[in-house]
Amino acid sequence: MDTRHPQSLPDGSPLVRFADVTKSYGDLTVLDKLNLDIAQNEMVSIIGPSGSGKTTVLRVLMTLETINDGVIYVDGEPLTHMPSGAGLEVASESYLRQRRSKIGMVFQQFNLFPHMTALQNCIEAPMQVLGLSRDEAEERALDLLQMVGMDSKKDQHPTRLSGGQQQRVAIARALAMRPQVMLLDEVTSALDPEVIGEVLNVIRSLNSEHNLTMIMVTHQMGFAREISDRVCFFYEGKIAEQGSPEKLFEDPQNERTKQFLHAVLDAN
């Protein structure tokens, strides 16, 4: 039982809070006492060299992986832990299912269900998990597919779609669950260069028109700079530097940030 952390956060606290979160695999520490707050409607980009723990931030927030120490809060309540007596204990599966509904995720490899059409991919969880009727679920899904420009392909299976099209369906599928926080894990890394734009456009509209809170791990420096409210540079499981995109890209303070930006921008 963990009594160092509060059982809930006061009103007006950030939508997502990482409090001293540590994640390690054996001797390898991937997240090292990470503290990170993300406000309602904020768009945060996470950049950094591979192995810096940036994807792990999203994976532990999605509860795909458990953390070794610390607590993650979502919407004022603990996510990874549940109240027990005076303190917190590791969350059970049923507690996780309650809390997880606030979070949605889009994956690098899309991970669409291959045995379902685009539309079926988008109505599956709303019907199974939220208990929507087929009509309600389809109405919601069709709106979203239209928003991502995939309504004309709604009856296609994923194997018939290009990478960019699959990723747009995957975004609609995640949105259909009406999450408060959207996690984007290198969503353009597996795409051919010519279709990256169509996916970035969808994310732009999510940001500008829907005001969704988003955490994005990305290698697209230009896009991160254009769209983010804040950019975090990760190095060895910690935030080495963070700030507004202008500040971080134009006037980095940390030596590691400078080196990383040099290397990345040179390569382009």
Binding site: M62, T63, L64, E93, R97, R100, S101, I103, G104, M105, F107, Q109, N111, L112, F113, E124, A125, Q128, V129, A170, R173, A174, M177
Partner: peptide, 15 residues
Amino acid sequence: GQWEAALALNMSPAQ
């Protein structure tokens, strides 16, 4: 990735 996507959509283990 299929397990992970299903979990991210908050499906129960049985689902």
